[in-house]
């Protein structure tokens, strides 16, 4: 008597068919995303690769496509980052420390928490409108670099707060206990035990938030980033432009030469984004080994 005889072969065969077909469906679902992305990338590279030249980095925008560059956009984006990264780091991590370590766990903090999570998902154009009302009009900062940078800071703040909170929460209770049991105050525990352990997570969050900000266009259009800027901002209140604005401008022109220029600019923007993401991964891996 074969011990395998009484197994329900028909039912098993059915299960196998189901397994195989679902496997195919999942593969298909993944491929749709990957293929779309690849087509997009290949298209951009075909259009933009031949135009990639140092001129793009050194020339200001111009009416003639062959002279045009995105120096002002590149520098504008860089200035925005220089303001945004430290500001959002301090505010975001500060808020996360308060909410995780100091705030009493009551209804109010839960409400604040809910709001922050919701804000992280608010469309960026809404932040643009807020920036316009708050910085441009109310604080009379005008259509300036600082208005744009502050608006972007508001945009990424919830993302950074949530990422930092998660990183802080991931530090085991026992590490805090160890510190408190040695006579540490709360701040000593936070600064010497909690933050060093959560810094990789926090930095990853900040870099990813920064890479989101560097690609954002809508809020900058609303707070009045100019599309044609043939100079570099010299002060915080000068007019400015940014890479995605420049790309938007070029792509929306009728001439093919400008469209190709836009494609080249996209390649540069993508390269910067990839660089930022790689940095985030490297930081995470480097510190994870020490924990």
């Amino acid at each position: 008597m074969n011990i395998f005889h009484d197994a329900n072969r028909k039912q098993i065969a059915n299960r196998r068919v189901k397994d195989k077909s679902l496997h195919m469906i999942f593969l298909l679902a993944t491929s749709v995303g990957i293929i779309a992305l690849t087509v997009l990338l290949v298209d951009i590279i075909i259009d933009g690769w031949s135009n990639l030249s140092p001129d793009l980095f050194t020339n200001f925008p111009s009416r003639k496509a062959e002279d045009a560059g995105m120096k002002s956009g590149l520098v504008g984006s860089m200035y925005i980052m220089l303001i945004l990264v430290p500001l959002s780091f301090i505010l975001g991590v500060g808020a996360a420390i308060y909410l995780e370590e100091y705030a009493p766990k009551n209804k109010l903090t839960r409400l604040i928490q809910l709001n922050i999570s919701t804000l992280a998902g608010v469309p960026s154009i809404v932040y643009g409108i807020l920036g316009l009302a708050l910085f441009v009009r109310m604080l009379s900062l005008q259509k300036s670099l600082i208005s744009g940078a502050l608006t972007m800071t508001l945009l990424v703040l919830p993302i950074i707060i949530v990422a930092a909170q998660e990183a802080i929460r991931a530090v085991p209770r026992s590490r805090r206990d160890a510190s408190f049991a040695l006579g540490a105050t709360k701040w000593q525990t936070v600064s010497r035990s909690v933050l060093p352990s959560s810094l990789p997570g926090i930095l990853t969050g900040v870099i990813l938030a920064a890479s989101r900000a560097i690609g954002e266009t809508a809020p900058l259009i609303i707070v009045g980033a100019s599309t044609y800027v043939a100079f570099l901002p010299k002060s915080l209140t000068d007019a400015f432009t940014a890479m995605p604005i420049q790309i938007y401008n070029w792509i929306s022109r009728p001439q093919v030469a400008f469209k190709d220029l836009g494609a080249s600019a996209i390649i540069i923007l993508l390269a910067i984004l990839i660089l930022l993401n790689i940095t985030a991964v490297i930081i995470r891996n480097k510190y994870q080994k020490n924990i």
Binding site: P172, S174, R175, D177, A178, S193, P196, S197, N290, I291
Partner: peptide
């Protein structure tokens, strides 16, 4: 403590 909890 019960579990050894050295800092990393």
């Amino acid at each position: 403590f019960q579990q050894p909890n050295p800092f990393p």
